[in-house]
């Protein structure tokens, strides 16, 4: 009865011609267009806003790696994002760690958390997986609420951006932007590479038919766990980058609402599409920016978008465009 997977709607074209870096021709064009937007936009728009978009775009791409290509919907990705932010912030502020290392530490803590959490959560699938990841993330939230190094309700404030590689002073927004843009594009390409590697093919096989992948001799658990850890590590990097951009890491980053936001971004853009999470993140961050003064209405509107997407718009923006153009984006 309920066999249609969350993502099969988005996977329009089954036979994909593998070009450079796993891009099809349409995807290569879209990627070039996206890179052009990333390069040009800081000259036109406020860099801090753009950096926020890029951080969340990377976060959503990391989340999408798991739901889109392994079919596991995590409802607890705020844990890795938030802990990444805290660790990067703490390392940069308390220990004076240079930014490139601090961000990598954020990714490392994401992976370190993702390993045991993923190991536990992949014991169940479907809805249970979502509930388990949510519950484990809530545990991290309570930990952050009480642990001394997070600063409780105040969070870690005045995190210094530092000097990249000892050369580039990141206090200027414009310089910081290029670092964030580099991290985003590198993360995006890495995810694309993972998805189109032999490893990624097995991931998709597990998503589409887990018993068959098992019967072909693949150790399904190991693949799921590996994907989980990669996704958590990238989420940690996104969180760490965000902490440097805004000089702050707070409980908002680890709260369950943040887990919901990343689900929403991917859903709006299109679950299981390559570019969907990026578009979704841009849409949601822009919306939050304009609605910030309306307080709790943001919650209502986000909820309404959730409902509308699930009821009428399951392919998401990019999924719909791809479907109309008959290409896989």
């Amino acid at each position: 009865m309920a066999e249609a997977s969350v993502v099969t709607g988005a996977a329009a074209a089954r036979h994909e011609e593998q070009g450079f870096w796993g891009f099809t021709r349409a995807q290569a064009i879209a990627f070039l267009a996206m890179s052009a937007v990333v390069v040009v936009s800081p000259f036109l728009l406020y860099p801090v806003f753009l950096m926020k978009v890029l951080c969340f775009a990377l976060f959503a791409c990391a989340f999408n790696l798991l739901v889109g290509y392994v079919g596991l919907l995590s409802f607890g990705h705020a844990a890795y994002f938030g802990m990444g932010a805290y660790i990067t912030g703490y390392a940069a502020k308390a220990w004076g760690v240079p930014p490139e290392l601090a961000i990598l530490m954020g990714g490392a803590i994401g992976a370190a958390l993702g390993l045991p959490f993923g190991w536990l959560a992949i014991r169940r699938s479907g809805i249970y997986f979502s509930m388990i990841t949510l519950a484990l993330a809530q545990m991290v939230f309570f930990f952050c609420l009480q642990a001394p190094f997070t600063g409780g309700e105040d969070g870690i404030q005045a995190i210094p951006r530092g000097t990249l590689l000892g050369v580039f002073d990141l206090t200027a927004d414009f310089t910081m932007y290029w670092l964030v843009a580099f991290i985003f594009l590198a993360g995006f390409l890495l995810i694309h590479r993972i998805v189109h590697s032999p490893f990624g093919q097995v991931m998709k096989a597990i998503r589409d038919n887990e018993p068959r992948a098992t019967s072909l001799g693949y150790r399904v658990e190991q693949y799921k766990l590996m994907a989980f850890v990669l996704s958590a590590a990238l989420a940690g990097i996104a969180g760490g980058t965000k902490a440097l951009v805004f000089n702050i890491a707070t409980l908002t980053d680890v709260r369950w609402t943040m887990s919901g936001e990343v689900v929403l971004m991917s859903l709006v853009g299109g679950l299981g599409t390559v570019f969907g999470p990026v578009v979704g993140a841009a849409v949601i961050v822009t919306m939050q920016n304009y609605l910030a003064e309306f307080g709790a209405w943001v919650l209502v509107i986000q909820g309404a978008i959730f409902i509308a997407c699930v009821l009428a718009f399951r392919r998401g923006v990019v999924g719909e465009i791809g479907n109309a153009l008959r290409v896989k984006l």
Partner: peptide, 20 residues
């Protein structure tokens, strides 16, 4: 008739609307 996860996502949206 869809994946059970959509039910979770829909009711999550409802929860946000009600709380908001």
């Amino acid at each position: 008739k869809l994946d059970h996860l959509y039910g979770l996502l829909l009711t999550f949206g409802c929860a946000l609307v009600i709380e908001g």
